[in-house]
Computed example of a mutant assay.
Amino acid sequence: MMYGNYGTGMWGVLLMVVFMIVGGLLLWGLIVAGVVTAAHYLRGPDRSRGMPETGTSARQVLAQRFAQGDIDENEYTRRLHVLDTTGPPPHPADTTQQRR
Results as ranks from 00 to 15, higher is better:
V35P: 03
Q60C: 01
H81K: 14
R49W: 02
M20C: 09
G12Y: 00
G7S: 05
Q97L: 13
E53D: 15
A39S: 11
L15V: 03
G7Y: 00
D70H: 09
E73I: 06
R59F: 12
A38V: 12
A63I: 11
R79Y: 13
R47Q: 12
G12E: 00
L83T: 03
R47G: 06
Y41Q: 11
A33D: 05
P52W: 00
T8H: 04
L15S: 11
H91W: 03
G69R: 04
D70W: 06
Y3G: 03
V17H: 02
T56D: 08
R99W: 01
Q97F: 06
E73A: 14
Y76F: 15
M51F: 07
T54I: 13
T8Y: 03
G24F: 08
G34F: 07
P90N: 00
P52L: 13
L62K: 03
V17D: 01
M1P: 00
T54V: 13
A38H: 10
R100V: 05
G4F: 06
D84E: 15
L25H: 02
G24M: 08
H81D: 15
L15C: 00
V61Y: 07
R100T: 01
P45R: 14
H91P: 00
G50F: 03
R99S: 07
G7C: 04
L26K: 04
